[in-house]
Nucleic acid binder design. Structure first.
Lengths: 245, 245
DNA sequence: TTGGATTAATGATCTAGATTAACAAGCCAC
DNA sequence: GTGGCTTGTTAATCTAGATCATTAATCCAA
C-alpha cells in the first residue's frame, strides 16, 4: 500500500532517513488497509494481538477499566501512531483500544515485520525508536497525573496534542481541532468531568486559550508552557554508524 | 565482562533464547563494569546519555522534580533493569536517575550496540522487547496513579516489586527485602508520606502483609492481587520465525 | 558512645477535587 | 423538524487525602 504523503510517513521519517529501497520494503509489508468503525474495539483487554497497525487517519484511545468502573486512558491515539506496541510482545493485551471516529490503518503482522528486521536490521532499530517515543510519552503522562496540579495537567495535555498534531500536519502554529470530548480528557488526566470543565474555563479566563466549539487556539503558548513546565521531546533520528550510512 | 549468573542474564534470557555465540557477542560489548556510589546521579535531567547500562546489583530511581519541589518517581530500578532506555534515543534526558544504594552496572555505548544489531539483528529485537517491558510497566503505573485508590496502589506496587525481584532471584515465594523507604514509595505513587504510612498500616491491619523492619511478607497474596486487580504480565519470549531458529 | 540525620508513626486541620444532580446546548437519525 | 443521545456547563455537598506539626525510632559517622 502506498505510504507516501501520509501521517505514518511523517512519523517514520522522523525516526530515520528512509531510502527508496527501504520504503519499498515497507510498502511490500503492509499488504492491506483496514477501516475501523467509530466505537469499534481494535485491541481487547485479555486477548492476544500480534500486529503492527499504523494509523493513517482517525482517532482512538488506549485504556483500562477497573472493577469500580473507573477508566484510565493511557494514550490518546492520533494519525501516525502505532497500535500494537507494546502489546504484540506479550501473550495477551492488558488494555483495550477503541476507535473514537472512523479510522483507517495499514496493518502488517508482527511476524512479517520481524522477518524484515532480519533482512534489514535498521527496521529493528526503527521499532526500538518508536518504542522509545512510546515509553517517553507514558513517562510524561505519569509525571502529569502524579505530581502536576489539574490546571497544569490540562495545559500539558493541550501542548502535547498540539505538538503531536503538528508533526503530522494537522495543526497550525497556534490552532488545532480538538478531537476529544471532556470526558475523554478527564479520564486521561485522572480528573472528574466537572472538574476538568472548570479547569478548562480557568485556562480561558486566564486568556491562555480560546475555544470555539472544539477548535482550540493557544493564545499564549509561552505562558502555557511555563505553567505546565512543558518540555518538548528532542527527537533525535537514529544515528547510523558512519560505515553504514 | 562475564554475565553469567547475574540478574542481567536472568532478564535477557526471558526475552530470547541466547546461544553461546550470542552470549559471546554480548560479553565482548560490555567492556567495563561501573560502580556507582549511593546518592550518585547516573543520568541527569537535561543532559545527554548515550549508553545502555545493565544493573547487576543495587537499587536506583528514575524521577523528575517539578518547580514546586514535587517529585514524581517514574520507576524503581532493580537489578536486571536497563538504564539508558529510552533516554539514549533522545538528545537530552527528561529525567534523572540516582542510585539509592551502591550499585554495580555493566555498560556499553549505544553506538556499539547499534553496530551489533547490524551484524546480529536479533539484538535489535531484544532491545524492542526490553522497550516493550518498559512501556508496559509505565502504562501500569499510569493506571495505578490515575484511577486506583491509595491502598490499591500500594498493594499493586508491592506485588509488582515481588514479581520483579523474584525474576532475578531476590525474593522467596512470599517474602522480600523492601529496598525503598516510605518517602520513595510515596513519590512513586503520587501520595504524601503520612498517607502512605497510614495505608501501609491498613494493609497490616487487614493481615495482607506483615513487616519486620524492611522485610515484607505477603501473608495473603491472593487477597492482595484481588484488591489491586493485579495482572502479572504474560512474558512471551520473542518468537523467531521457523527458518531462523 | 554520642549526636546528627534519616526514617517511621501519629494527630489536627483544611481544602482541593470527587460526587451527585440538574439543566442547557448540540448533533444525529429518522 | 422532532425526539433522543451525547456533550458541555453549573451548583451544592462531602470527604479523601494533603499539609503541617510533632515525636519516636533507627541508622550512621565522627
Amino acid at each position: 500500500m502506498p505510504l507516501n504523503g501520509h501521517a505514518v510517513m511523517a512519523r517514520l521519517t522522523q525516526a530515520m532517513k528512509l531510502r527508496a529501497a527501504d520504503l519499498a520494503s515497507l510498502e511490500a509489508l503492509f499488504e492491506r488497509d483496514v477501516t475501523v468503525g467509530k466505537r469499534e474495539e481494535l485491541v481487547i483487554h485479555g486477548s492476544p494481538f500480534r500486529s503492527l497497525c499504523f494509523v493513517k487517519d482517525g482517532y482512538a484511545i488506549r485504556y483500562r477499566v477497573l472493577r469500580s468502573g473507573r477508566r484510565q486512558i493511557l494514550k490518546l491515539i492520533l494519525p501516525g501512531d502505532v497500535i500494537g506496541f507494546p502489546v504484540s510482545f506479550f501473550d495477551r493485551s492488558t488494555y483495550t483500544v477503541v476507535a473514537l471516529t472512523e479510522m483507517t490503518c495499514t496493518v502488517c503482522s508482527l511476524e512479517s515485520y520481524i522477518l524484515l528486521c532480519y533482512e534489514q536490521p535498521q527496521f529493528g532499530l526503527v521499532l526500538s525508536w518508536l518504542a522509545a517515543q512510546e515509553a517517553a510519552g507514558y513517562a510524561e503522562h505519569i509525571v502529569n497525573i502524579g505530581r502536576r496540579r489539574p490546571i497544569e495537567r490540562l495545559a500539558h495535555l493541550l501542548l502535547e496534542l498540539h505538538e503531536r498534531l503538528s508533526q503530522v500536519g494537522r495543526a497550525t502554529e497556534t490552532r488545532f481541532d480538538l478531537p476529544f470530548s471532556q470526558e475523554i480528557m478527564a479520564d486521561a488526566l485522572g480528573l472528574s468531568v466537572p472538574h476538568l470543565n472548570r479547569v478548562m474555563q480557568q485556562l480561558r479566563v486566564q486568556r491562555l486559550i480560546t475555544t470555539d466549539a472544539r477548535r482550540i487556539e493557544l493564545t499564549d503558548a509561552t505562558a502555557l508552557q511555563s505553567l505546565a513546565q512543558y518540555e518538548p521531546l528532542g527527537l533525535a533520528p537514529i544515528a547510523l554508524p558512519d560505515r553504514l550510512s
